[in-house]
């Protein structure tokens, strides 16, 4: 991880009255990497993005883009940022091209020359002249993404960019995000689509109630691609006792049996122990932890495993 830091937040805090939406958040995004920002609804993702863009004033802490404090030098800092917010909003009575032109005029520099190439890159060349209000949700998202690239930004912030896109469109966006990182830009991606995050992100930050509860590469977050067994068995309590007797520490009850974290080579041993005790499993399936599993585990309300940032 050697690229220049394009985004850094230092102890970012935001309180709305008695509610703490973001609580001491430290994060970094470097050039050439895609960082996923994950969290359940209300975790503070959009508030964090709002503070990075100077839309929301932090209660404490700071956000820096390319070393410039957003609160102190907002316009300079945002010159290096392209951001697409969760709800893509443009003037409904203007065409997609005119909306982009408006943003390009605001951006200055060579942004005007990028309007048509970006429409083409995002697959909107044919509909560039149509009014924004006639666009489908997917087209609106594409236009939003196009607008982020007008200023040739060092940092691209995408909040739920695949909303409303069909599978082919989602795939295109994933490829585009990787291309952006390949162009030496830093990308901060907030998404609910965990498989999307899993496929495109170099690092993931998981926040819950405004606090960073986990961070690292996908492999680190999923415990090195850690594996477990899904065991379908009747008497879960007795089965768990027997497996604990074998030294298995992580056991979780499921509606159909148990999820048991153990070396994949121990499948036969577990089966034999259960069968010896008269508990016949109807299935013992080796599984690999996915980001979704870890995310659910980390963010479920009463999860005891929600530990401080790693």
């Amino acid at each position: 991880m050697t690229g220049e830091v394009v985004l850094r937040t230092n102890g970012l805090v935001k309180r709305f009255g008695s509610i703490t939406a973001v609580n001491g958040l430290d994060l970094e995004v470097r050039r050439g990497e895609v960082v996923g920002l994950l969290g359940p609804n209300g975790a503070g993702k959009s508030t964090t993005i709002g503070m990075v863009l100077g839309l929301i004033a932090p209660t404490a802490g700071s956000a820096e883009v390319l070393g410039r404090d957003v609160r102190v030098r907002r316009e300079e800092a945002l010159a290096g940022v392209g951001a697409m917010l969760e709800v893509t909003s443009f003037y409904p009575y203007l065409s997609g091209r005119d909306n982009l032109t408006g943003v390009a005029l605001l951006r200055g520099g060579g942004a005007l020359a990028r309007v048509d190439p970006l429409l083409a890159r995002l697959g909107l060349a044919q509909r560039g002249g149509s009014k924004f209000r006639t666009y489908s949700l997917g087209m609106r998202q594409r236009l939003g993404i196009a607008s982020t690239l007008l200023s040739d930004p060092a940092l691209v912030i995408l909040d739920e960019p695949a909303n409303g896109l069909d599978p082919a469109g989602q795939r295109e966006i994933r490829e585009l995000i990787r291309e952006l990182a390949g162009e030496n830009r830093g990308v901060l991606l907030a998404s609910h689509l965990l498989h999307e995050v899993e496929q495109v992100c170099d690092r993931v930050l998981v926040i819950k109630k405004g606090k960073l509860i986990a961070s690292g590469t996908i492999a680190e977050i999923t415990r090195g691609g850690g594996s477990y067994f899904e065991i379908v068995v009747g008497d879960q309590t007795r089965a768990a006792q027997i497996l604990r007797g074998l030294g298995v520490k992580e056991i979780r009850e499921t509606p159909t049996g148990l999820d048991v974290v153990a070396d994949p080579a121990r499948g036969a041993e577990l089966n034999r122990a259960l069968a010896s005790a008269g508990l016949y499993a109807s299935a013992i399936v080796p599984r690999a932890s996915s980001l979704e599993d870890v995310f659910m585990e980390l963010t479920e309300p009463e999860s005891p495993s929600a530990s401080p940032a790693s």
Binding site: G54, L55, A79, V81, S89, F90, L106, R107, L150, S151
Partner: peptide
């Protein structure tokens, strides 16, 4: 109402 104020600010408008 359209959310364009937020969009403009996000694109660097003051």
């Amino acid at each position: 109402g359209w959310g364009t104020f937020r969009t403009l600010l996000a694109h660097g408008a003051s």
